[in-house]
Simulated assay, not measured.
Amino acid sequence: MLKKRKKARKAVETFQEASEDMAYDLVDVENEDMAFVMVGFEDGTKGQVTLSQLTGGHENDLEVSVDVSRYSMT
């Protein structure tokens, strides 16, 4: 787990290539950016819940995806 992270001093694009002259501050990490939760249901079905603040291209949205051996749906 990281105790400090770089925070850009001005707005940058997601996944923008960093440059040596990019100004940033080191800030304390107060929460986790990502979590994985394994779940099991009464019928034996297993699943995983992924929670992320890091997924590029998904700003302020909620996505539910069901992926099984024969199909998937979102």
Rank of each mutant, 00 (worst) to 15 (best):
E30P: 03
E63N: 08
V12E: 01
L54V: 03
S69E: 08
F36G: 04
V64M: 10
R9N: 15
Y24Q: 02
T45I: 09
K3H: 09
S19Q: 14
E63K: 08
V12A: 06
H58D: 09
S65H: 10
V68F: 10
G47Q: 05
E32R: 08
K6A: 11
T45D: 04
A35D: 04
R5Y: 04
M1K: 12
M34G: 03
Q16E: 15
T74N: 14
M22A: 09
D28T: 09
N31L: 06
R9P: 00
H58Y: 13
R9T: 12
E17P: 00
E32W: 03
G56V: 04
F36A: 10
F41R: 04
V12C: 02
Y24I: 01
E13W: 04
K4D: 03
D43E: 12
A11G: 02
A11Y: 03
N31D: 12
L26M: 15
F36W: 09
A18H: 08
R70M: 11
E17M: 12
L2N: 10
D28E: 14
L2M: 10
T55E: 06
G44R: 07
K46I: 04
K3S: 13
T74Y: 12
G47K: 08
T55H: 07
V68W: 03
E42G: 02
G40R: 15
L62T: 02
F36K: 11
M34N: 07
D43A: 04
V66T: 10
A35Y: 06
S69V: 09
T50V: 15
M34H: 13
K7W: 01
E59S: 07
V37P: 00
V37R: 11
A18D: 12
E30S: 14
D67L: 12
T55R: 05
S52V: 00
D33L: 09
G44L: 06
F36Q: 07
S19K: 15
R70H: 11
Q53R: 14
E13P: 00
K7R: 15
E32K: 11
A18N: 13
Y71C: 13
N60V: 03
V68G: 12
L62G: 07
R70D: 11
D43C: 07
E17C: 01
K3M: 08
Y24D: 01
F15G: 00
V49S: 03
E30L: 14
V49K: 02
S69C: 03
S65Y: 03
A18K: 15
E59A: 12
G40P: 00
V64L: 15
E13V: 04
G47M: 05
A18T: 12
G56F: 08
M34C: 12
K7F: 01
H58V: 02
G47H: 04
T55A: 08
T14N: 00
T14Y: 00
Q48G: 06
R70E: 11
G40N: 10
E59M: 11
V66N: 11
R9D: 07
Q48C: 13
R5G: 03
D61G: 10
E32D: 10
V49Y: 05
E59H: 02
D43G: 05
S52K: 01
T74L: 09
G57C: 05
D33H: 06
V29D: 00
E17T: 11
V12F: 13
E59Y: 02
R9H: 03
D21I: 13
Y24F: 15
T45W: 02
K10H: 05
E30H: 10
D33I: 02
A23E: 14
M73H: 11
V39Y: 05
L54E: 07
T45R: 11
S72I: 01
V39P: 00
A35R: 14
